[in-house]
């Protein structure tokens, strides 16, 4: 091996070391940056969940939205938006909307709740938990708890 070859081998190895270390650094920094970047623009303490645009709701129209794996029913009443946990307090069925009665209805045992979430008919023992709702810039935001 002559001197020139030895030098070229040396610089080649140095390049490899440098390149490898750089790759290593990038492989470490990239996940860290993506981790620090807000995921879904909300942290572990979720404050509100959007239920869509306010003008998409007609009067007495309702929508079920998921908050942390739990269904929440959003109702547009003439007085404004209301939101309740959509889990019946009787046996935990997902409740729906009875358009004719203007009441929240449980399909399982015909439990009915008024638009204040209070049970008015059937077996439900307690009222539905209410979620705060606010309309911000035309968007219906439901509080997570």
């Amino acid at each position: 091996m002559n001197e020139e070859q030895r030098i070229s081998r040396r610089t080649f190895l140095d390049w490899l070391v440098a390149g490898g270390l750089l790759t290593w650094a990038v492989a470490f920094v990239a996940p860290v940056i993506s981790y620090v970047w807000p995921a879904q623009k909300r942290g572990p303490s979720v404050q509100t969940v959007s239920a869509g645009k306010a003008d998409e709701f007609a009067e007495w129209q309702t929508k079920i939205v998921a908050i942390g794996g739990h269904p929440v029913i959003v109702i547009r009443t003439p007085q404004g938006f209301r939101a309740f946990a959509a889990i019946c307090t009787h046996l935990g069925c997902i409740v729906g909307w009875d358009a004719a009665r203007h009441q929240i209805a449980c399909p399982c045992h015909a439990g009915f709740f008024d638009i204040n979430g209070r049970p008015v008919a059937g077996p439900p023992p307690r009222q539905l938990a209410e979620h705060g709702v606010a309309v911000v810039n035309g968007e219906v935001l439901v509080k997570s708890a």
């Binding site: 996940p31 860290v32 993506s34 981790y35 970047w37 995921a39 879904q40 572990p44």
Partner: peptide
């Protein structure tokens, strides 16, 4: 579950 690469960290 939500934070990217959170499981890795």
């Amino acid at each position: 579950t939500k934070a990217h690469f959170g499981w890795l960290i």
